[in-house]
């Protein structure tokens, strides 16, 4: 399974070390602790806002997903506050850049 191939289809995978039982992020074929081969699983896509700002009408935030990995993405619905729960509702690759769109879920 290839992270980018799946991301292009809108599927958000994470790499997980079956030995260390940790999510390895950024996604990688090998664990950055034991260097053994990782496995891939679908991400729950749920997390919380750590910080946010705004450029014109685009709200962007650092979100912590599955209590372990952090991404910078766009909040497309809801009013952001630190600690509010979000879900990645769309992701993919455009113009060689990943994108993560999030919605506030509470």
């Amino acid at each position: 399974m290839n992270f980018e191939t799946e991301l292009k289809k809108g599927k958000f995978l994470v790499s997980e070390c079956p030995f260390c039982k940790i999510i390895v992020w950024p996604p990688s074929d090998f664990c950055n602790r034991c260097l053994k081969e990782n496995s891939w699983k679908e991400c729950s896509c749920e997390g919380k806002i750590l910080e946010f700002s705004k450029k014109e009408n685009t709200i962007f935030c650092v979100a912590e997903i599955e209590k372990s990995l952090k991404i910078l993405g766009e909040i497309i619905s809801g009013t952001p506050e630190i600690g509010k729960k979000i879900k990645v509702v769309d992701c993919g690759i455009t113009n060689n850049n990943y994108f993560f769109k999030m919605a506030i879920i509470e």
Partner: peptide
């Protein structure tokens, strides 16, 4: 830094600087 895809579409340094400033 093109490698840092975890910044998504927000790779320009003004975005990390905005997050630092806000925090």
């Amino acid at each position: 830094l093109e490698w840092d895809n975890m910044r998504g579409e927000f790779k320009h340094p003004i975005f990390w600087a905005s997050i630092f400033s806000k925090a």
